[in-house]
C-alpha cells in the first residue's frame, strides 16, 4: 500500500477533500490542510482498511522561500512545515503527512490524543521550531530550559551570548565571514 493508494482509499471513504499528493524527489507524502488534520488522522487510525496505529515521528522544518530563477516568481512561500510519519503494522505501510503553516503564527491541532507517542515529539517540535499544538496536554519545552529565548532550528535564529550569567561565546570570537 503506497501513498497513492492511501490517498485513493481516503477519497473512497470520503475524507480526502483538500488532500494533495506531494511527490518529492525521494518520498511521497500527503499534504493535508491544517484544519482537517485531526479528522484525517482519526480516520487513518480507525479505518479497518488503513489502521495506522503507530506514530513514528513528528517534526518541523522552516521552509525558506524559493523563487523561479528566470521569472523571479515565488514558487514556494516561506513557512513552517510539520511532518508526521505514521505506520500501519497491520498492513505494513508507512505514510508521511505534511501540514503547511505560516511563519508568523504556526498553529495546528495536536494529534497526541490519537497517538500518545506524538506527545513528546510535538513538544520537541515546539521546542525547536516553535509550532504551537492546540489541545496538547502539556506543551512546554522538552530539551531546552524553560526560560530559553527563541527557537533554534529556525533559519533566522540568533545564537545567545550568554545564559544565566554563563558565557556561550567563543574566545577568540568567530571569524567574520
Amino acid at each position: 500500500m503506497n501513498t497513492q493508494e492511501i490517498l485513493e482509499t481516503l477519497n473512497k471513504d470520503g475524507v480526502g477533500q483538500g488532500i494533495t499528493l506531494f511527490e518529492g524527489p525521494k518520498d511521497p507524502a500527503l499534504v493535508i490542510p491544517a484544519d482537517r488534520l485531526v479528522g484525517v488522522c482519526e480516520h487513518l487510525k480507525s479505518a479497518p482498511s488503513l489502521q495506522f496505529d503507530q506514530c513514528i515521528l513528528v517534526t518541523g522544518t522552516h521552509m525558506t522561500e524559493i523563487r523561479d530563477k528566470k521569472t523571479k516568481e515565488v514558487t514556494r512561500a516561506e513557512g513552517i512545515e510539520v511532518i508526521y510519519h505514521v505506520r500501519s503494522l497491520r498492513h505494513r505501510a508507512l505514510v508521511a503527512l505534511k501540514v503547511h503553516l505560516s511563519l508568523e503564527d504556526p498553529r495546528v491541532s495536536s494529534v497526541a490524543s490519537i497517538w500518545p507517542a506524538a506527545d513528546w515529539h510535538e513538544r520537541e517540535t515546539y521546542d525547536m521550531v516553535g509550532v504551537v499544538f492546540e489541545g496538547h496536554p502539556n506543551l512546554k519545552r522538552i530539551l531546552l530550559p524553560q526560560d530559553w529565548e527563541g527557537f533554534p532550528l529556525r533559519k533566522d535564529y540568533e545564537f545567545p551570548k550568554e545564559y544565566r550569567g554563563i558565557s556561550l561565546e567563543v574566545d577568540p570570537p568567530w571569524p567574520q565571514q
Binding site: L144, W148, P152, Y157, F159, P160, Y163, I166, S167, L168, E169, V170, D171, W174
Partner: peptide, 20 residues
Amino acid sequence: VGGGPYWKHGYNVVKGIDKF
C-alpha cells in the same frame, strides 16, 4: 576544552568549561 565539534553551531554548548 573549547566547545569541540559544537564550536560554531552549538547554540547551547558552553565553549569550554573554563568559562565558569
